[in-house]
Amino acid sequence: MNVLRWWSGLLVAFALLILLRIFLPLPFNNEIIIFSVYVIGCNFLLGRVGFISFGQPAYLAVGAYGTAFYLYYFGTNPYVGILIGILSGIVVSLIVGPLFVRLRSDYFALVNMALAVIIFFLMQKVLADITFGDNGLWFLTNVDSTPILDLTRPDQFYIFAFLAAFAVWAFYKYLDDSIFGACCLATKMNDDKVRFLGYNNFHIRLAAFVIANTTTALAGSLYAVYLGFVSPEMTSPARTADPVVVTILGGVGTLFGPIVGSVAYTGMKDLISKYFGNWELVIGILLVFIMLAGEKGIWGSLEPLIKRWVFRQREAEKPAAADAGVKSR
């Protein structure tokens, strides 16, 4: 029963995503799935560890270019490409992490933003011979069809991305419920007291940093395979706030906030851009109103109401069950 309850939230959330797939076009669905995987790392860092990161596009680009380099220069199997993208994310996180996680949250935000700018210029200018600068790397035709799930077909790619996202969410739910999740939250609330208990808070932060950025790199790899194209634009300075904005929009630190935020953000972007050229302006104004209405974001505001409703339902079921017990005797 507890196992079922543990999975129930995840199953409901992803069942709703399947419903979206029925009613909305495939590209929109692929976009929200990948975008929500992109955002969950930022959500974990901000909600669990207290790190606001304006550098997530850097790790997104690391994953995307890791995959793109492999598929353009070395191989044709998209699964191997995704694996290489994930490994690139782990390697870069392990290189910069020991330096970055020592910093206070505000400096952490800025140094990550600086990394995004560095990656942008590396890909745009310094490594232009192999990245082709702003023209980007096109490798859609290099990618081989694969058995079982053919990632070159958008509908089958959706199934793969959906399953990958489900696995990511199950992993983050496990983290949230684990001692490690509690340690992360404890370092956010009171760094010193974690040390009183005998924990090395540096190791906790580094592990959280690597996990979050590896997830972001996975999102980058998914983008690369889905689009068959990468360019430095994905890590441009104008894009650095996107995951933070969506995290706040969805609800910081909530498990399903990144999904809700991604649906809302992508939906608003697609809907508004149809009628209004400067859609960023409208989204900016909408965000201000959403923040003023409740700092908890969309899911952060809805979650307590849903929990209260579920609790009432359970309470209402209890006397009925008790009555049934009496009658059976």
């Binding site: 001692i179 509690a182 939250l185 609330m189 007291k193 974690v194 208990l197």
Partner: peptide
């Protein structure tokens, strides 16, 4: 100051 967002159980688990 305890870890206020964690339950008593989670505090003890830490």
């Amino acid at each position: 100051k305890v870890f206020s967002d964690l339950t008593v159980r989670e505090n003890l688990e830490l």
